[in-house]
Amino acid sequence: MHTVAFPNKILPYLLVAPQIILTVVFFFWPASQAIYQSTLREDPFGLKSGFVGLANFSAVLADPNYLSSLQVTVIFSILTALVSMGVALLLATAADRVVRGQTLYRTLLIWPYAVAPAVAGMLWLFMFNPAMGTLAYLLRRNGFGWDPLLNGDQAMALIVVAAAWKQISYNFLFFVAGLQAIPRSLIEAASIDGARGARRFWTIVFPLLAPTTFFLLVVNTVYAFFDTFGIIHAVTGGGPAKATETLVYKVYNDGFVNLNLGSSAAQSVILMIIVIALTAFQFRFVEKRVHYG
């Protein structure tokens, strides 16, 4: 590590100040507020609140609703990550064949691949909208009871697809880059060694993509955990019967709808711990595992 000596003692602090201020205002302050709130409980009329220690936490963790929400979140995250990464990988292998070894001009060809899923996702949502969607109508006419407003599994499928499509473009670009980084001669050696198609993919390409896949897995999980509030709010509102109420959505529901601030704050503190753990996990692993060669 190279150290730089600044002639001026104040300049370095001025340079990092904007970053520090942003972090304090938008992270430390709300975070400390959340921690503070999580130790308080309001009386039923919301007139005064008192210190209750960790009682909010034990209440939350003992709440069957919370545990089922945790389960919903895990299922939702796994499915979202699988769908978005699976589709992205499929598209990326197709694109890799086109762009491999080509110039920048050819690389630009991948942009349609990257944008298409976003458009497709929008259309998908329209088509499956139970009130006005063409496909929803077709499904129902053919005797398939399509009603995500009543059926929890269908609601889950709908938000998984809605959440996954947004990530496909991002994952796609990373997978294409990862595929392009695999030396061509390795693929050629494998083809001489008698490995083709699926076999070559699973024994050579996929293992070499492991660092990319792992990185994307963490990114997608974090996304599904924390960044899908808008989608759930717009598509299912956490229903039917809490079947799509993820942890983040529950924080909102309990805090802003049910006005149970203490419990909501405790839940957000738990979420904060989860995201910190995930990030630390990623840093540890990615630093260890990206080197292959």
């Binding site: 390795l186 293992p207 292959y292």
Partner: peptide, 12 residues
């Protein structure tokens, strides 16, 4: 069978 300039050994 072919021997490549960069050896092309499977790194994993």
């Amino acid at each position: 069978a072919m021997v490549f300039q960069n050896y092309a050994l499977y790194p994993h």
